[in-house]
């Protein structure tokens, strides 16, 4: 069985590196996108098994991206973890409304994120 693929859509390189390093010791394969537009394109093209979506993104916002992906048949059922900013109360509700499977508020503990990923997408 091939490794399960996770797409991480996040514009901050350091944040991406944290998740990259976190998943290095696991069997998950990570693919990355730096903005909402690229995130949608890669998700539709590569059909990841799980998507980590930051809600504050350039070009297309994370909420709009989640909405678009939920509308597409290939990604309608893909688990999506929305990563919200602590600063913006109400993001949780909005993330739920557009169809995110779970949410995690920034700043999050990397190991909490890993736990959430494992719950939604058990390692092979």
């Amino acid at each position: 069985m091939s490794a399960k693929t996770i797409l991480y859509v996040e514009d901050n390189e350091l944040n991406r590196k944290i998740v990259r390093d976190l998943l290095k010791r696991t069997s998950y394969r990570l693919i990355e996108a730096a903005d909402g537009e690229a995130g949608i394109a890669i998700a539709l093209e590569q059909r990841p098994d799980l998507i980590l979506m930051d809600l504050q993104l350039p070009k297309v916002s994370g909420l709009d991206a989640v909405r678009t992906l939920r509308g597409a048949p290939t990604t309608a059922d893909t688990p999506i973890i929305a990563i919200t900013s602590f600063a913006l109360s109400g993001d949780h509700q909005k993330a739920k409304d557009v169809g995110a499977s779970a949410y995690l508020a920034k700043p999050y503990s990397p190991f909490d994120l890993l736990g959430m990923i494992r719950k939604l997408l058990p390692e092979g």
Binding site: L14, I18, K106, P107, P110
Partner: peptide, 11 residues
């Protein structure tokens, strides 16, 4: 940057 500091430190 603080997020990054905390994240890497935790790693």
């Amino acid at each position: 940057p603080l997020n990054a500091i905390l994240g890497f430190n935790e790693l």
